[in-house]
Design a protein around this nucleic acid. Structure first.
Length: 587
RNA sequence: CGGGACGUGGCGCAGCUUGGUAGCGCACCUGCUUUGGGAGCAGGGGGUCGCGGGUUCAAAUCCCGCCGUCCCGACCA
């Protein structure tokens, strides 16, 4: 039998103030040097500022300090989700495989799969559409039960092909995922708009610059989707948008008005000409002196149905996801396959005279103009090739957008911006409710399929995007909404010195005013070390308390974002600091 | 999945080409001094050099295999 003495061998005193910390005795592992294998700024700074530690590729532990930021993001999310009437619940991370088999998503390459001791197939959840729908199918029986919005903040596991950039692309992460259940499309529209409004507030309160863009539905399926993107050089996605934001879309589905090159007059029929040693579009443009837009690029893909020849203008590229909508899953052709189907090597390929087995898909831009294409003969090309006259092809938008092309809304040129995806919203429709039998009885007693939506946010990505968007050479500059603390008091001197006692008092007063305050009361550290670490951590307001502060002040206060220092009187200092912070928070 | 780079005390690195006593800075421990922007001096602890095999009298170093981590690519002919 054991007993508690209550004496408390642990030396760190509990804080009487909810949310405020004294630093002495805390685990806060900062580092001087950038981690050797870090590239992204958020990766370097999140490690150096002692917010996270890596366990393995794509697996990170969040430290007590890092957790404060994550929990602040989550608190904002909870408030805004609750505000639109979404209800928090919690679903398991491990799922029976059968449920995923029902929707055809068992066996996805990113899915962690395992067996329990009885040999039952299980999966680790990469998302929770299947599970939430499984429950909805059992619990929601009547139109009177609808609508519903449920959300959770729960771990997701994905066996990423390439985890990267610190916490930005990981194999295990926490996600806020919500799901709406409506009786019809009009209901879904309302739920979707409610989430859209909540997301705007969440990302605004998190202090991010963000874009809402049209997006591909991807592995979620469904009828429509938007992504929330935070611009950052470390982002993996690219958004095409006008300067005003009048048009904004993921490049995976972005459209634009292609520039029209001057084709000049072409021959009445294709003419073959020698192009010795010419392989790439760049070489061909240099050789012919023609603009790349008048050269047709031929790309050979292999779909389940067989070989596909995709044709775009030389300045464009075939977009993987766009063409996937037409031809489905596919891969690049091997050189041997290309030789078999075209009788030539890559570099001299074209649409004329190819085997009937090859499906030809041309980008819509190819419908106008005449082009130089490969002749399917080593070292030769054809000029004056015209779609419809000289060869037949399906046409569709299969190209990438390039910077500077005109926006389809007439609002000026398109710019391409690298972004971090911080959230997304999907209109799922019946994609999951149908196969999992989530139905209800309407007013007339007719069975109807529930119309669903799903909505995700990655809190850690929000935090990392904030670092990407807010930092300088000294460290992080947190937005006020998600900073680990509102105010960081640097105490110069020991806790039991007069200035130490004053700092403790100020810490209490500020906390009583509703601020979350970090008091750096660690003994033995030099002032410089405390300042450097305060800059690294990046709380919005820093207050310095030292010998000079007493007996008559003033207090030195610094705003992290601007570096502006001001001196304030001891009398009413806490209120003045709170007012300063409130001014920053108000933006 | 393809390509590349890197694995040496906790962190950041040198040493490897040309095999022969494992080194530097920071961090850590002790003492003294110092205390408003990553202190100084003195003393000290800590590494079977990612793992396995091979060559050799001898391997951090050369060879083979594996593992790990990061970066680039994964249609762009």
């Amino acid at each position: 039998m054991s007993e508690g003495t209550g004496s408390g061998a642990w030396r760190m005193p509990a804080s009487p103030y909810r949310g405020s910390w004294r630093l002495d005795g805390r685990f806060w592992p900062t580092v001087r040097d950038d981690p050797a294998d870090a590239e992204a700024i958020s990766h370097k700074l999140s490690v150096r500022a002692g917010l996270v530690r890596q366990l393995a590729a794509g697996l990170y532990t969040v430290t007590p300090m890092g957790l404060r930021v994550i929990q602040r993001v989550e608190a904002i999310i909870r408030e805004e989700m609750n505000h639109i009437g979404a209800q928090e619940l919690l679903m398991p991370v491990m799922h029976p495989a059968e449920i995923w088999e029902a929707t055809g998503r068992y066996g996805l390459s990113e899915q962690f799969r395992l067996e329990d001791r009885g040999g039952r197939k299980m999966v680790l959840g990469m998302t929770h559409e299947e599970i939430v729908t499984w429950h909805a199918a059992r619990e929601l029986r009547s139109y009177r039960d609808l609508p519903q919005s449920w959300y959770q903040i729960q771990t997701k596991l994905r066996d990423e092909p390439r985890p990267k950039s610190g916490m930005l692309r990981v194999r295990e992460f926490t996600m806020k995922d919500s799901y709406s259940f409506d009786a019809d499309e009009a209901g879904l529209e309302k739920s979707y708009e409610a989430h859209s409004a909540a997301y705007a507030r969440i990302f605004d309160r998190s202090g991010l610059l963000w874009y809402r863009v049209e997006s591909d539905v991807g592995m979620m399926g469904g009828s429509g989707a938007h992504e929330y993107m935070a611009p950052s050089p470390s982002g993996e996605d690219v958004v095409a948008r006008t300067a005003s934001g009048s048009y904004a879309a993921n490049v995976e589905l972005a459209v634009s008005v292609a520039r029209e090159p001057d084709f000049g007059d072409g021959p009445v029929a294709p003419e073959e000409f020698a192009t010795p040693g010419i392989g790439s579009i760049e070489e061909l443009a240099g050789f012919t002196g023609q603009h790349p837009a008048t050269l047709a690029k031929s790309v050979v893909l292999v779909a389940d149905s067989g070989p596909v020849l995709a044709i775009v203008r030389g300045e464009h590229q075939v977009h993987e996801k766009k063409i996937a909508h037409l031809i489905g899953e596919h891969r690049a052709a091997h050189p041997e396959e290309i030789r078999e189907w075209f009788g030539a090597d890559p570099g001299s390929l074209g649409p004329i005279g190819v085997s009937d087995a090859v499906r030809i898909v041309a980008d819509s831009t190819i419908e106008t103009g005449h082009y130089v294409t490969g002749a399917n003969r080593e070292g030769f090309h054809l000029r004056g090739v015209v779609l419809g006259r000289d060869f037949q092809a399906e046409t569709a938008d299969i190209r990438t957008v390039i910077e500077g092309e005109a926006s389809v809304d007439g609002q000026g040129p398109i710019e391409l911006v690298p972004v971090i995806e911080i959230g997304n919203i999907f209109k799922l429709g019946k994609k999951y409710s149908e196969p999992l039998g989530a139905t209800y009885l309407d007013e007339k007693g007719q069975e109807q399929v529930i119309i669903m939506g799903s909505y995700g946010i990655g809190p850690a990505r929000v935090a990392m995007a904030a670092i990407e968007q807010g930092h300088d050479e000294n460290g992080i500059i947190w937005p006020t909404g998600i900073a680990p603390f509102d105010v960081h008091i640097v105490l110069i001197g020991d806790a039991d010195s007069p200035q130490g006692e004053y700092a403790g008092m100020l810490w209490g007063q500020l906390s009583d005013l509703g601020l979350e305050v970090l008091l750096d009361d660690r003994p033995g550290l030099r002032p410089g070390e405390k300042f450097v670490e305060a800059d690294l951590l990046g709380c919005p307001v820093r207050v310095t308390v030292g010998k000079r502060t007493l007996p008559d002040g003033p207090l030195e206060v610094m705003v992290r974002r601007t570096g502006d220092k001001s001196e304030i009187a001891l009398d009413g200092a806490a209120e003045a600091i709170r007012a300063l912070w409130a001014g920053l928070a108000a933006g």
